[in-house]
Amino acid sequence: MAITKNYLKTRPVCKVTFTVAEPDAEKVSVVGDFNNWKPTKKYELKKLKNGNFKGTIDLEKDQSYQFRYLIDGSYKNEEQADSFAWNDFAGAENGVLEL
């Protein structure tokens, strides 16, 4: 799994690209406080021929976001997140993006 950040010079936005290696998965989405934890089509990653899932979303920079991957209905953290934060509701840690 990997995260790539590309900050735009003309707007206060960071294009965040998520790459998830889950070749046996059918569906992978990114959910977090930026989308109210809802796996909508906009945050669904596309499956590539090599079995990885990849997608880019625009997020406001100078912000911190909690997130997780939703892989075929199960939550999974990004190992390369900037940090982790405990979530009492989920009883688990969420990954944190620092933009």
Rank of each mutant, 00 (worst) to 15 (best):
residue 58 D to W: 13
residue 88 D to N: 15
residue 77 N to K: 14
residue 39 P to C: 07
residue 97 L to D: 07
residue 90 A to C: 08
residue 64 S to I: 09
residue 70 L to A: 07
residue 29 S to F: 09
residue 99 L to D: 10
residue 42 K to L: 07
residue 7 Y to K: 15
residue 73 G to C: 07
residue 95 G to M: 02
residue 71 I to G: 02
residue 60 E to Q: 03
residue 24 D to C: 07
residue 44 E to V: 06
residue 11 R to F: 13
residue 31 V to R: 04
residue 56 T to A: 14
residue 13 V to R: 02
residue 47 K to D: 07
residue 70 L to G: 00
residue 24 D to I: 10
residue 52 N to R: 11
residue 84 F to E: 11
residue 36 N to I: 01
residue 37 W to F: 05
residue 25 A to R: 01
residue 41 K to H: 01
residue 47 K to R: 10
residue 28 V to H: 00
residue 1 M to I: 06
residue 55 G to N: 08
residue 8 L to M: 14
residue 17 T to Q: 15
residue 26 E to N: 12
residue 66 Q to K: 11
residue 59 L to I: 08
residue 62 D to E: 14
residue 40 T to A: 00
residue 95 G to Y: 04
residue 5 K to Y: 01
residue 84 F to S: 05
residue 83 S to D: 15
residue 6 N to I: 14
residue 95 G to W: 02
residue 39 P to S: 08
residue 49 K to W: 09
residue 5 K to W: 04
residue 48 L to P: 02
residue 74 S to Q: 11
residue 62 D to G: 02
residue 91 G to E: 09
residue 17 T to I: 11
residue 84 F to C: 07
residue 93 E to K: 14
residue 57 I to A: 04
residue 45 L to E: 00
residue 71 I to H: 05
residue 71 I to A: 08
residue 34 F to K: 05
residue 34 F to H: 06
residue 67 F to D: 06
residue 94 N to Y: 13
residue 96 V to T: 05
residue 76 K to R: 15
